[in-house]
Every structure is written in C-alpha cells, then in structure tokens.
Write a protein that binds this DNA or RNA. Structure first.
Lengths: 335, 335
DNA sequence: TACTCGAACTAGAGCGCGCTAGTAGCGCGC
DNA sequence: GCGCGCTACTAGCGCGCTCTAGTTCGAGTA
C-alpha cells in the first residue's frame, strides 16, 4: 500500500480512500491510484483491513459437501451477500470433518455470522453457537436455540403432494422419510395427517430412510423384494427428498417398473437434479434462491440492527408436477 | 489479551506464548493464563494473529458448485491439509460468480496458495495467477503457466476403457466429449487413437458435449432420434464423465433401451454417483483422495521449500467394470 | 566466590490497514 | 480584505497479535 502511495505520489490514506470507494478523492487521482495498484499487483489485505476496522463483513456458510440442494442454496447466497456488501466463506462438512469442526473454522476466520445449511448437529451446540454469534439455520428447526430459521412450510408441501396423488386415484401411498434429517419430522407428520384426512389411515406406511440416493435405491430393492414375495407394490411413493427419489427411480426403472404407469414418485426440494430426468421429477419445490436470500438478510439485519430477536421465515412450497406422477391404472387384484 | 495478561499477572508476550503452545513458559503460569482466559472468554483473534505473523497457513480451494467430482476432491483435501497444519477456505464458482471472482475472494482472504479444481478460466489468467501466488491446477492442464498440475493419465484411462469395450465385441463405439472441460481434449485424442489402433477408424464418432447430466440426456435424445430415423444405435458409448453418463443412461433406459444388453455405457471419474445405480456404472476411476493429497502437498511444498519449479503429478486411472458394460449381442443387420 | 547457562519472563517494534483530526488551496459573498 | 465552506489531501495513532532482543534469576561448575 505504501508502494502504491509513493508511486502514485499520494499518501497512504488516499489510497485507502480510493480502495474503499469513499468520497474525498479526485476523479483523476482515483484513476491514477487504481492504475498504479494494478501495475504493482496490489490488493488490499483483508486481515489488516478487518483488524483496523474491527469488522470483517464476512458471512460463513456451513454446508454438507454432497447435498445437491445445498449447492443450490449456495448459488443463491453469493449474490445476495454481495449485494449487501458482505463476503462469503464456505466450509464443508464431510465424512471425516464434523459440522462442529466446519463451523469452528468459520468462526476462527472471523465470520461475523454463520449460516448453517441443514445442520445436523445437536441442538445444545446450536444454541450455544447462537449465544456466541449470529447464526441462521436453514431447513432445520431448532426450537429452543437462539438462531434464525428459514424453511419452507413442510406440511403445506406434503399436503399438496398428497392431494395431488389422491386426486390421481392413489391410495397405497408410501412415504420414505429422511430420518433425523432437516425437515423430515415435519414431512413425516404431514404425511400421516394427510393419509388420515383422506381416510387412508390403514394404508399409511413410513419406510425409514435418509436424504441420499443410496436410501432410495435400498427402498426400491425392499419394495421389489416385497413384490416378489407376493405383496403388491404401492401405487405411489413420496420420497424424503429428490436424491432419495432419484435413487428409487433408478432402482425401479432398472427392474422394469414403468414410472409413472406402474408407480408414481414424488420428490422434495426441486434441486437441479429434478429437471434432469427426461420425464422430469414431480416434486415439491423449495425456492432455494429465496431461502438463501432470507438467510443472508436475517444474518445481516441481526448484525446491523443490534440485538434483534431471532426470527423465522416460512416460505411457501409449491408442487411441481412433472413426469413421474400419473393416474393409477386399474388396481390389480390381490396378489 | 491485555486483560488476560493483567489478570494473570504476566506480560502480553507470555500470554501469546501460552496460546501458541510455545516453549518458554512455566507449567504453573501456563495453567493460570489458560484459566484466566477461559474465565474472561478470551479467544485469540486470528485476523491480528495472521497480520502479525505474516503467514496465514491457509489454502484456498476454488471449485465449481455443481460438479460432484469436485466434492469428492474436497472431501480429500480437508484431512491432508489438516495433517500438514493448514486451514482450508472454499470458494465456489457458480452461474453468477465467475472463477476469477471466486479466486480473488480467496486471495483477498490471505490464502497462501490456491488449488483450482478443474479450472475453466483462460490460461493467461492462470499463468498470471501462478506468477502472483502458488497455484495448483487439478485436472486441467495449462501448458505454459507457472502452476502445479495434478491429473490422471487420461490417455491410459480411455485406452483401458476402449480395450474393455472392444474385447466385449463392440465396434460402433461413440464418444461424447466434454467440450473444453478439463481433460476433455486428452480423452478425445485418446479415443481417436484407440479407435485407430483397433482398426475402427471408420466407426469413430465424437459427439460434442459437456460434463453435465443435461449433456448426456441431450445426446441420448439425439441417438434415439437417429435410431428412429433408421440409423442403428451405437453399441457402446464412452461418456465425457460420470454425470454425462448418468444423463445418457436416464434418457436411454427411459426409452426402453436395455443397458448393457442393447448398449454399453462407460463413464469417467468414478464420482460417488457411480456406485448409485443398482447395476453400477462402468467407469474410469480417478482416485479423488489421492489427487487431493497430491494437490495439497504440492501447494505446501512450494510454500515451504521456497522457489520450487512447478511440478506435475500423473496418477494412474483404473477401469472399474460394473454393470453398464456388457458383450455385444448379435449385430442387427443393416437397418 | 565468580562465572556461565538456561529457563522464565518482558519491552517494544511492527504487521497493513482504517479513521479521526487536521491542513492546504480555492472560490464565494459581503 | 476577510471569513466561510468546500474539496482534496495528509499525519499518525491504534486495531490485537507475533517476534526479536533483551533482562532476571536461580542452579550448576570450577
């Protein structure tokens, strides 16, 4: 910085002003400083900057590396953060790297707030985190903790999906749940409620699963095995999320089951995977861009408006009917 | 820090020593300092630490948000970096956020080196980057640039795949390439060479594509349309990567084409997607963990051993035969 | 006793910025 | 001619830490 100042024939302070885009520098000087900086290859050192300023204007984002929906969220976080003048740091949780570790990395890099995408950590930890810093949880509700919360109205989404299936004549509708994954409990509950509401209580069946392709495949195998054992296939499956639905589809299609003729499949998320299949996945759309926007805004507002109470944003999901759901054919007689 | 020092009755320097776990402090004092720090809730400020130390011991990783193989690499980068005592910062390129922007973010956060996963930026930029800092390119060869390079021997991988297919009796083998994606040029060249070597020059056909599922689906549609127009399907397809192979599989399976009976498909990468399909994707395995390890090690060694020349690591790919490749049935007569 | 030596500790400069308080120069109105 | 306000710029302190070059002190050695 001193070099730039000298070479441009100004003081360091002026260079600082130029780089902060602040008033107080002539147009001509401004250009000269920028040109010289470019020549030298100078770039403001954010460590020093944030030390001097006392603020880092940086948001940390914790995500799970393999979750495709998280990448959709990240795609939405960047522009909104930039719009509000914040930097974004990513930290991934992987098999060998726990969420806690990922979050600690963010904090030690001086993030002012952390945005947690579908966190799976214990609520006690999340609460403590919320006390220590500004935290936003996306998708995962943490009832007692001091964290903002952004999610879609899971119940509403499931209800729409179920109404859609029932309208198509489905009765044997199975739900693969997402274990203790974010949103799973709500979806499970809504599924049960919908079955009850449609008088299908007796048919209700929740198969334990996860939010992964593997889980879908496993369930597919299970259902096929049952069929081969004489038990009829369900006519529709409501999967825990799109990845699970994808796995299921692969397993079933592979075994000659025609989707949606023999069986309808509905996913959840509308992650970018959903468009991929030639016939498209019928799914409950969570607006990732909008969720990301809310998460960023919550964090920034808490940072800038002092001690706000944590808030909650509930977005409306929307059923997107594509090719994997269709009317029930004639019910085959009891096997 | 000054508070801690005062309350513990020592100098700030001593507190610094304790927190850096350095020699030069008595056991008793050490404990007292730590206890006091805990009471006050003191945490060393990494910004100041970084500024004072002049080194951040942080590696920046630029990746493309939707590329599943990148997530495999990231999973491998974390543990190796930790082992060598380095922090990792992630920065994603997305639709609205160019690679350049992602890299600049890393640099301004004081990363000492950047690891670029399958970079797509112009070589001029990469070279400039290599001059300015320690840079490692994974998968993408940048001939003239001052960057380390980690990749798999693309030619070898393709050759193995092609030998496998030819051995199974395939002759009409088509290659969907990856455009100007990392490794694509090498794979394309190796495909052509293999066809020539097997005397199949006349059958060689490269269909332009990308490293995405969409591209596979599109190609699937194209091939099906050609079939419906009277032209026979190829008997095998070598896709540009796994994602492309996946898209292709979905399109074909969906249309009633039996893989591998009617057509064999081979992918590239062995990303975690490959295991997913019930029959498994035959693919060329790139060892993500090993690649990640090399990339990290290159970066760290260049950082610590002064002005080393950029190096290149070529790993051996390995054909993984799973369920999507099989022997050619009787060749149907000319349509 | 006089010294050496190492362990335990301290003073204080400096890392690269931002920011406050200031100065220089200039056109303006009265 | 004077004060006024405005723009363009500068001096220099301080952010919270690390690190070098010390100082102090007690034990060991001749």
């Amino acid at each position: 910085m001193a070099d730039v100042a000298e070479k441009a024939g100004v003081s360091r302070a002026l260079v600082s002003i130029v780089f902060r885009n602040q008033a107080g520098a002539g147009q001509e000087t401004r250009e000269r400083v920028l040109r010289v900086a470019d020549e030298i290859g100078y770039r403001p050192d954010s460590a020093a900057r944030l030390l001097a300023r006392g603020r880092s204007r940086t948001l940390g984002v914790m995500f799970t590396v393999q979750q495709t929906f998280h990448t959709d969220l990240i795609t939405g976080i960047y522009p909104e953060a930039e719009r509000l003048g914040y930097d974004v740091l990513l930290s991934g949780a992987t098999r060998g790297r726990s969420e806690v570790k990922a979050v600690e990395a963010l904090l030690s890099h001086r993030c002012e707030a952390v945005i947690l995408l579908g966190p799976d950590a214990e609520s006690a930890y999340l609460d403590e985190l919320g006390q220590r810093t500004v935290a936003v949880s996306v998708s995962r509700r943490v009832p007692q903790a001091r964290v903002d919360f952004v999610h879609t109205a899971e119940g509403k989404g499931v209800r729409q999906a179920m109404d859609h299936l029932v309208e198509l004549g489905h009765r044997r509708i199975v739900h693969i749940d997402g274990g203790r994954g974010p949103g799973s409990a709500e979806r499970r509950r809504a599924y049960r409620a919908a079955m009850r509401r449609h008088g299908l209580e007796a048919e209700a069946r929740v198969i334990p699963g996860h939010h992964t392709e593997e889980s879908g495949i496993e369930t597919g195998r299970l259902l096929l095995a049952e069929r081969d054992g004489g038990q009829p296939l369900p006519t529709a499956v409501l999967a825990g999320n799109d990845r699970c639905a994808m796995g299921l589809l692969m397993a079933l299609t592979r075994a000659g089951v025609d989707v949606p003729r023999d069986l309808s499949v509905v996913g959840y998320d509308d992650s970018h995977l959903s468009h991929l299949m030639p016939i498209g996945l019928t799914t409950v759309r969570q607006d990732a861009a909008l969720m990301a926007e809310h998460a960023v805004r919550f964090a920034v507002e808490r940072l800038e408006k002092g001690e706000l109470e944590p808030r909650e944003a509930v977005l409306d999901p929307k059923l997107v009917v594509r090719g994997t759901s269709g009317p029930v054919l004639k019910e085959p007689g009891p096997a």
